[in-house]
Simulated scan of single mutants.
Amino acid sequence: MDRHTFRLGVYGGSFNPIHIAHLRLVLEAQEALGLHRVDLVPSARPPHKSEKGILPFAVRRELVHLAVADLPGVFVNDIEESRPGPSYTIDTLAQYQRENPGKQIYYLMGTWDLLSLPTWHRGLELWTVANLVVIERGNKGRADVEAFLDTHRQQFALLEQKNDDCWSLSPDRTLHYVRMPRLDISATLVRERFLSGKSITFFVPEAVEHGLERMRGMISEIWNVPTRHEENDTCLSI
Rank of each mutant, 00 (worst) to 15 (best):
F194W: 00
T111R: 09
V129D: 01
A207M: 01
G53Q: 11
S14K: 06
L149W: 02
T5E: 14
V190W: 01
I219L: 14
S43F: 05
A32M: 04
V68K: 01
P171Y: 06
G9P: 03
H48A: 10
E28V: 08
P42Q: 12
W167Y: 09
D113T: 15
N163H: 11
Q104S: 15
L212G: 00
S186W: 00
E125P: 06
R214Y: 07
S237G: 15
I200C: 01
D184Y: 05
Y107C: 13
K103I: 05
F57C: 07
D78I: 03
D164C: 10
N232I: 02
P181Q: 11
F15D: 01
V190Y: 02
E80K: 03
N139W: 12
S199D: 04
P226S: 05
L23I: 04
I79L: 14
Y107P: 10
L114S: 10
T151C: 14
V10D: 09
N77P: 03
Y88E: 03
G85V: 03
N100H: 12
Y177Q: 08
Q97E: 12
V41I: 15
A130C: 01
G12F: 05
L117Y: 04
V59S: 08
E206Q: 10
R193M: 09
G211M: 00
L25C: 08
W120R: 01
R24A: 13
